[in-house]
Computed example of a mutant assay.
Amino acid sequence: MEFLVGSVWAAGLAIGIAAFGCGIGQGLGLSGAMSGISRNPEAAGKIQVNMLIGLAMIESLCIYALVVALILMYAHPALKGAIAALGGH
């Protein structure tokens, strides 16, 4: 049961750190893009495309952290014993 509790704590911590880091990264990227567009409005199209690709890459890191967190919570042997102990199938 301790492994299950540790997994849930690790999953929550992983998602929290990933969301914090991705939020900072996206904010910095958006700030840089807006600064570039304000200096050179003619390049807004190219800057916007590159910004969107960069933001998608940053967001994928948070999604990977979510997948790892879900694996930690639901795909380990202790979960089967915990469910059986709680009266599940």
Rank of each mutant, 00 (worst) to 15 (best):
M1G: 15
M1K: 07
E2C: 09
E2I: 13
F3S: 09
L4S: 12
W9C: 09
A10L: 06
A10I: 09
A11I: 01
A11M: 12
L13I: 13
L13A: 07
A14T: 06
I15C: 11
I17N: 00
I17M: 02
A18H: 01
A19K: 14
A19M: 13
F20A: 11
F20H: 05
C22F: 01
C22N: 01
C22T: 10
G23I: 02
G23H: 15
I24L: 13
G25K: 05
S31T: 10
G32E: 10
G32T: 12
A33Y: 06
S35P: 06
S35I: 15
S38G: 00
S38I: 08
R39Y: 05
P41F: 05
E42M: 11
A43R: 05
A43P: 04
A43H: 06
A44W: 11
G45Q: 12
K46N: 11
K46L: 09
V49G: 05
I53D: 02
A56K: 02
M57W: 10
I58C: 03
E59L: 00
E59T: 09
E59K: 02
L61Q: 03
L61F: 14
C62A: 11
C62G: 04
I63A: 05
A65H: 01
L66F: 03
L66C: 03
V67A: 13
V68N: 03
L70P: 01
L70K: 08
L70A: 10
L70H: 06
M73P: 00
M73E: 10
Y74Q: 12
A75N: 11
A78Y: 06
G81R: 12
I83D: 08
A85V: 12
A85Q: 12
A85P: 00
A85E: 15
L86C: 12
G87A: 12
G87Q: 12
G87R: 14
G88K: 10
